[in-house]
Design a binder for these strands. Structure first.
Lengths: 200, 200
DNA sequence: GTCTATAGAATGATAGAC
DNA sequence: GTCTATCATTCTATAGAC
């Protein structure tokens, strides 16, 4: 449907999405700063100059990947809060949705979680990430007021702990691995809400 | 007592520990690869050459910091397993000890958790880290066999989720911040073992 | 759309004076 | 123990041919 999805004419070459996917994969393997444009080009089987035909700069590759991750995470929050339900219901859905995004878009989210704020592109991503965290913290606080989330832990700390657990998935989850994403989402919710101990 | 603790003679200059601490802090702020030796020297108020008088290479700074973090984490495991107790007791102590190490030695542990394996130094650190993870996973499995840890989640997944939560502390915990490390350790154990929901 | 060739800047590391 | 000066290498990005 979109202009991008129509069949390419002439010799195939590489399109932007394909180049971006390879670049993000390499950024995650070696780190963004440790990966040169020549590294990316080599893995694609072309030269630096050819790569610069597709993208204006190395930072543009980074910016596109970070925007994709942030768009997906913000959409989970927007969609959840637009539906009726208690704060506790919303919180459960946001955690579930975040796990879904992390597993479905692992490469770009991994990149996002490693950003240090060295450049304008990275600082803008950090700004959006902080805004996301604050909205989730407000949700945790509301769930505490409802009495369904324990109130003996500060809402900001509780949010960071749970999302620390969720975010850590990018360090080891792989789409082609042995762990099923649906089962994983169930496990994360189980540990986050009920804990590791056997139900008494 | 040790040779290193005797008073320095002559003009003070900088000693290795001081230089290392500044380097690790900068590595964490900007990322190891994004930080040049000139950056480290500038923050110390001296030149690159003066820094190379204290250390043979940029990688030596990295190696010393990673070894410090790994030594501390392995010591927690060794010390815990040497004591009598059930696997569930040991697991609780290891989580508690890991939080203590993360808060007390946040800079070097942060660096460890971000290593990508680009060089021999980094790969050796990853090897030790994997060995640590496997020993903890064995502990979780033993605690499941005892019946005190829920058995409906794979031991390796459960270990990664809990330590994902623990490790995420380095992203936001600061020694001079508002959160007390003892209280934080209590909160981590509470969420990890009993979950976020109010006790029913 | 891809190539060769290269500009211009920054990097890790060293030599040698003080 | 710190400095100035410098080296070889690598980096991002560009010019211009095919």
């Amino acid at each position: 449907m979109s202009a991008d999805s129509r069949p390419r004419r002439g010799r195939p070459g590489h399109d932007r999405d394909q180049v971006l996917a390879v670049a993000v994969q390499l950024f995650n393997e070696q780190g963004y700063d440790a990966t040169s444009v020549a590294d990316v080009a080599a893995r694609l089987g072309l030269t630096k100059s050819a790569l610069y035909h597709h993208f204006a700069s190395k930072q543009e590759l980074l910016r596109l990947a970070l925007d994709a991750a942030l768009d997906a995470l913000e959409e989970v929050l927007d969609r959840t809060l637009a539906e009726p339900g208690t704060a506790s219901d919303h919180l459960r859905q946001v955690v579930r949705g975040a796990v879904d995004v992390l597993t479905a878009r692992q490469p770009s989210v991994t990149l996002l979680l490693r950003v240090r704020g060295n450049t304008d592109v990275e600082q803008e991503a950090l700004r959006r990430r902080r805004a996301f965290d604050q909205r989730v913290t407000a949700l945790v606080r509301a769930a505490q007021d409802e009495g369904l989330v324990r109130a003996d832990i500060d809402a900001a700390v509780a949010t960071r702990l749970v999302f620390g657990m969720v975010n850590s998935l990018v360090e080891w989850y792989r789409p082609d691995g042995a762990v099923d994403p649906d089962e994983l989402a169930r496990d994360v919710l189980a540990v986050a809400l009920d804990g590791l101990q056997s139900p008494r």
